[in-house]
């Protein structure tokens, strides 16, 4: 990782490195492919796979190659499964301007496409709740939100909107309750899931105060022409059935310096993203200058997802 060119954007560096590694690893893997193990429908290699956090660099590269080959044969196009690590001195924070959100759900579907969510059974990582403005006099009571509104045009008269996805809690109940340690908080604050280690007990869903976690009840279906081949091991790679998934702040994008897909999709610019440790970032500006709040603050989950207005 030395001698890199600091002038190129973050993702260009990551991609070139991966391309090199992938070429080398694929050469090794193709030699093994002819063996008798490939005839087994039950994937022993996957069955005995180690916990992501205990893998060596070689293990991870082998995993990436295996996944890429699997997805390439399933979807018929080249895949990139990255394992880009966190960046020193970066903790991600998210801001959402509820004064601006119009409830158009552009973010919901941008997220579905970017993050390869199952189309059927349908999974949406973002849920947009609609509230009566009059009721806001009593504060936002999440129990009165309606995710199923269907108007001709939004924003509808007298309503306001609160989109909810993973709040990236600093003290996250979901990672505490997971019996296998298959979900944890990364150094940059992203709560991730090892889809190959999750046993699907759904204790984390029971423990999440924000309904952010979603289970693959059936075999996830993604049309091959819509699948996003630019993926991350801990993020948007296609998931197996029977495991839990959730928003990762688009880990495959943000660790390369890019904005999450929902930020880019929002037509009104209500979604803000940046480095909480950088005093000049947009997220720090709004924390310092706007009226911000977090959902269910009384639970002390300490979200890194801030709602603001004014």
């Amino acid at each position: 990782m030395k001698n890199r060119d600091d002038r190129v954007p973050l993702d260009a560096r990551g991609a070139s490195r991966r391309r090199f590694l992938r070429g080398a690893a694929a050469a090794g893997a193709s030699a093994l492919a002819a063996g008798p193990a490939s005839a087994l429908s039950f994937d022993l290699e996957a069955f005995f796979q180690k916990h992501f956090r205990e893998m060596s660099q070689e293990d991870i590269e082998a995993l990436q190659t295996r996944l890429e080959r699997k997805y390439e044969s399933r979807y018929g196009k080249p895949f990139n499964v990255a394992s880009t690590g966190p960046i020193d001195g970066v903790v991600y924070g998210y801001g959402l301007d509820i004064g601006r959100c119009i409830g158009c759900r552009r973010c919901v579907y941008a997220c579905v496409e970017e993050n390869n969510q199952s189309r059927d059974p349908e999974i949406h990582w973002i849920r947009v709740l609609e509230f009566e403005r009059e009721h806001a006099l009593r504060g936002i009571d999440l129990e009165e939100g309606n995710p199923y509104y269907d108007h001709e045009k939004v924003p509808a008269e007298g309503k306001f909107y609160v989109p909810i996805a993973c709040q990236m809690c600093e003290d996250s109940p979901c990672t505490d309750v997971c019996p296998t340690g298959a979900t944890w908080e990364e150094p940059d604050g992203i709560v991730v899931i090892d889809y190959d280690w999750c046993i699907g007990c759904r204790y984390c869903i029971a423990s999440c105060p924000y309904g952010a976690r979603h289970f693959n009840w059936g075999e996830p279906q993604i049309p091959a022409d819509e699948v996003n081949p630019d993926t991350h091991v801990l993020g948007n790679r296609p998931r197996p059935r029977g495991v839990v998934e959730k928003c990762t702040f688009c880990i495959q994008r943000v660790r390369n310096g890019r904005y999450p897909a929902c930020v880019e999709a929002c037509p009104v610019g209500a979604r803000k993203f940046g480095n909480l440790l950088d005093p000049n970032s947009e997220i720090r500006y709004l924390l310092a200058n706007k009226r911000t709040f977090v959902l269910k603050a009384e639970l002390r989950t300490q979200p890194k997802f801030f709602y603001f207005y004014g």
Partner: peptide
């Protein structure tokens, strides 16, 4: 559970039980 073949992930030594954090 959604992945019964992975139950061993929460057994000691074989897997990585999230002990003492997880009540499960």
């Amino acid at each position: 559970v959604g992945r019964p073949e992975r139950i061993w992930h929460m057994m000691p030594l074989l897997g990585a039980p999230n002990f003492p954090h997880s009540l499960l």
